[in-house]
């Protein structure tokens, strides 16, 4: 048996700044993970549906427009509505400290700001992905 961690790197919202998302996608690939990238300007509905279809272990959300408080919790709710509550959801972008606790209360398991080392994100996934028995 060969289990691979599958990650959806997703950009909700309207901003086109995908440097971080793409760098992360490459880092995840280099760490041996299978990465599905959504491209920019995706709706929470699209992201949740793709996450389920692709049976990913992780959804990594990136938003730099400031719309994270609106969009991230929506993705969480939609995934729960589809019964996919075993997916680890993490977020990143230009996110003020004050919003981090709000996002965590709304189901985002961890928030990574600018300057987070890639290894931190990779290790976080490795130690937090819920692999079924």
């Amino acid at each position: 048996m060969e289990q691979k961690i599958r990650v959806l790197v997703a950009k909700p919202g309207l901003d086109g700044h995908d440097r971080g998302a793409k760098v992360l996608a490459r880092a995840f690939m280099d760490a041996g993970m299978e990465v599905i990238y959504t491209g920019i300007r995706r709706t929470p509905e699209q992201i949740a549906e793709v996450a389920v279809q692709e049976d990913v272990d992780v959804v990594a959300l990136s938003c730099l427009s400031g719309a994270h408080n609106t969009l991230f919790p929506k993705v969480v709710d939609l995934l729960r509505g589809k019964g996919a509550d075993d997916i680890l959801i993490m977020g990143g972008g230009v996110i003020p400290e004050d919003d981090i606790s709000f996002l965590k209360q709304h189901g985002i398991s961890e928030v990574f700001g600018p300057g987070t080392p890639l290894a931190t994100c990779v290790n976080y996934i490795r130690s937090h992905v819920k692999k079924e028995a």
Binding site: K4, A25, R26, F28, M29, D30, A31, G32, M33, E34, V35, I36, Y37, T38, G39, R42, E45, Q46, E49, V50
Partner: peptide
Amino acid sequence: SPFSGGAILGDRVRMFDVAL
């Protein structure tokens, strides 16, 4: 990737019109 065994699966980007 033959080196890491990981992959970036990018076909989706061109398929978003039908994703939903």
